[in-house]
């Protein structure tokens, strides 16, 4: 479908966002000698091997012991280190929520929690590993910054940028090969939404892998004579409320699109902003209070209502409610 569409952003290559993390991690390690790494037996999956090879003294394999990893990371900040922890999103959040809450967030520690294999697109491993609640848990924690980049280039840029930000960060990325459609060597500004496409009838706020689905959805809507604005919300918290209000006050309605539970996700943060400052129709594209299952990433996005076609449907519904 997307090949014949006139999308405003295009790609020639697909790559996994976790590789953007791995390459960014190596680069930031070269730039900043205080950056250190910890991994819970998933160095290959997290693409942390190149950093480990180049800086073995600054890298700690902690084994399958995530709680200890989070505590060690918190301790490493005392003395000025900038620890990046690596494991799957599931084990980076739910499994260690209390460690993050007390030793990292409440204590204001400069730990970068780097979480791969988030969401349904993890694929065949199924629901035990497909966490869809992680952004919700992390955004509820005071002091925590939550970032969910959309492709290889943006993930790499975010990985580098977070080293210069003082405070705990949750950086979420994924496993599947995905279109690379944002600029190489882009500047990543934490908390600043990126208006990718101007429009006037409806705003699509998308994050993570679903930004690409939203690019496709915009093209479909345009063919049907609907002008959609696309805003890439790479930072879930702090949320760029100004960008949201500016856009919705122009378009009058919106759609949120995320590879996450609807409960507690990006859409809920947008709803809170709109409800208190500019009430307007909002339609959610996300997982509706269910766990995932095994399958191929694109099959899962279709089955759970998270692809471009569902964004198009939601946009039309939002417009009809104006």
């Amino acid at each position: 479908m997307e090949k014949t569409l006139d999308t405003k952003f295009t790609y020639t290559e697909k790559k996994d966002t976790r590789s953007g993390f791995g390459d960014g991690f190596l680069e930031v390690g070269r730039k900043n000698k205080n950056v250190v790494g910890l991994c819970a037996d998933l160095i290959g999956s997290l693409k942390m091997g190149a950093f480990q090879k180049e800086f073995p003294e600054r890298f700690f394999q902690v084994g399958i012991a995530e709680a200890n990893m989070m505590g060690m990371a918190a301790g490493l900040t005392i003395g000025g280190k900038i620890p990046y922890t690596g494991t799957f999103a599931n084990f980076s959040t739910g499994r260690v929520y209390d460690q993050i809450r007390q030793s990292i967030a409440y204590s204001g520690k400069n730990v970068k929690i780097c979480a791969s294999h988030a969401g349904l697109t993890l694929g065949e491993d199924g629901a035990t590993h497909q966490i869809l609640e992680d952004m919700g848990m992390m955004k509820m924690l005071p002091h925590m910054t939550v970032i969910n980049p959309c492709d290889y280039n943006q993930t790499k840029a975010a990985t580098i940028a977070i080293a210069d930000y003082e405070g705990p960060v949750y950086l979420r990325f994924g496993r599947p090969n995905w279109p690379i459609f944002t600029p190489k060597d882009q500047k990543f500004e934490i908390g600043k939404a990126w208006k990718m496409i101007e429009g006037k009838d409806v705003t699509i706020f998308a994050t993570g892998h679903l930004v690409w689905e939203a690019v496709v959805a915009e093209a479909i809507l345009r063919e049907e004579g609907i002008s959609a604005e696309l805003i890439n919300i790479h930072t879930i918290k702090p949320l760029d409320k100004e960008a949201i209000l500016d856009s919705v006050s122009k378009t009058g309605c919106c759609v949120s699109a995320e590879e996450h539970q609807i409960n507690g996700g990006l859409g809920d943060s947008i709803a809170q902003t709109l409800a208190t400052q500019y009430p307007a129709p909002l339609e959610y594209v996300g997982v509706n209070d269910s766990f995932g299952e095994s399958g191929k990433p694109t099959e899962l996005l279709e089955k759970y209502g998270l692809n471009a076609a569902n964004i198009v449907k939601a946009a039309k519904k939002a417009i009809s409610r104006k």
């Binding site: 709680a67 505590g71 918190a74 490493l76 900040t77 000025g80 460690q99 007390q102 030793s103």
Partner: peptide, 27 residues
């Protein structure tokens, strides 16, 4: 006070991290 504690079981991990930071800093 350098870190919060109270929820039990977390302090040893933190101390290990801080001790590793000392080694990296040649302290």
């Amino acid at each position: 006070v350098r870190i919060a504690s109270g929820s039990l079981g977390q302090g040893l991990s933190v101390a290990i991290g801080a001790a590793l930071a000392k080694k990296l800093n040649n302290d």
